[in-house]
Design a binder for these strands. Sequence first.
DNA 1: GCGTGTGAATAGTTTCACAGCC
DNA 2: GGCTGTGAAACTATTCACACGC
Lengths: 207, 207
Amino acid sequence: MDLSNNTIERICKIFGHLDALEKRGVDFVSSKELAGEIGATEYTIRKDISLLGGPGYTRKGYEVKSFKKELGEKFLLTKRRKACIVGLGRLGTALLDYENFQEDGFEIVAGFDCSVNKIERIRTSIDVFAVSRLEEIVEARDIELGIVAVPAESAQEVVDLLTKAGVKGILNFSPVKVNIPTHIVHLDMDFTNALRFIAARFIMKKT
Amino acid sequence: MDLSNNTIERICKIFGHLDALEKRGVDFVSSKELAGEIGATEYTIRKDISLLGGPGYTRKGYEVKSFKKELGEKFLLTKRRKACIVGLGRLGTALLDYENFQEDGFEIVAGFDCSVNKIERIRTSIDVFAVSRLEEIVEARDIELGIVAVPAESAQEVVDLLTKAGVKGILNFSPVKVNIPTHIVHLDMDFTNALRFIAARFIMKKT
DNA sequence: GCGTGTGAATAGTTTCACAGCC
DNA sequence: GGCTGTGAAACTATTCACACGC
């Protein structure tokens, strides 16, 4: 299958929203409702779904439970995925305890920091280690995702370590562009750029 | 002017990179180099720049200093913009101290939380207040940006407060879709969705 | 020669329109 | 009647090709 990033992003949002609907006990949802909820049009939603080979007809919309299950299976979103966090500064420790990860199928199974002092001070239920043990632990615990929360100057180094250790995906919170081999899926979350983007749109408004 | 979001996003990244180059004392940069650095093609970069009314000819690329200045002025990225953070849990306090904001032209001038206990405990150089004073402080301090770092269940409420207080942009870290009036520029940073996106691309790989 | 600026061509995405099913 | 699934149309974005300035 070969879906565009936009489509994948929308599918992820749909999945999250189906999850919420399921918890609220809703049985059916229409493309229109989904569209409103995730900020897209009903056409786009239906097209996205049709690319996956849409479920089946009903006159009430999609059946929440089975649709969610289908998406989960197709994208393996149901599989619990193990992740680690590198860099246990304020942001890193905040992420360590971010409950939503655990709820939504991701499991933070290790934290790393280069400061041994910090490692000893941290109080959390998640195991923390020195960065020097990263490769060993990632392999031993089958970690697929690396979350990078170190300062700009060590970001590249950490990414290289994670790459060497064999993670499949990297979520980068450091505010620099790092070189990541193309076989590793990655996404940058740069807060400053996010604010800049908002500020720039103050001026260049386009819907 | 009427630029697409993609273009604006790239311009923001270019701006950030020019800033880094300037600090490193680099004088010129070509579209090709910029492209590599922000993950785009040289064509796209040149097209983006031409939409702004490109600078001038040289055989060495763009002149870092003047180009950065030009972008800053056109997008008002140079103006220091005031922001506040609502929700002083782990993420919120991490953001309070996120040094990069201060460096890059954004100034966090207030923090808000509904727990008075928490407000008293927090040790930071930034003023913190009860959420009940949000409207008053936002107006008094001319705050343009609201950063939402509260749990899902209070996100909508906080967004409504910020809207009423008159902020122009919202950066939403809560993991739910909130309704935000269209005249307010906003951006969602949903960590779980980010991880899902990465996980989904493990399967649906499309460059 | 090197690297930009930009119209034209290509590729990709979204919207529409409508047939089909419950 | 209501809502989906999907080919075709409209739109948007990216890439290319090449003229131009230094």
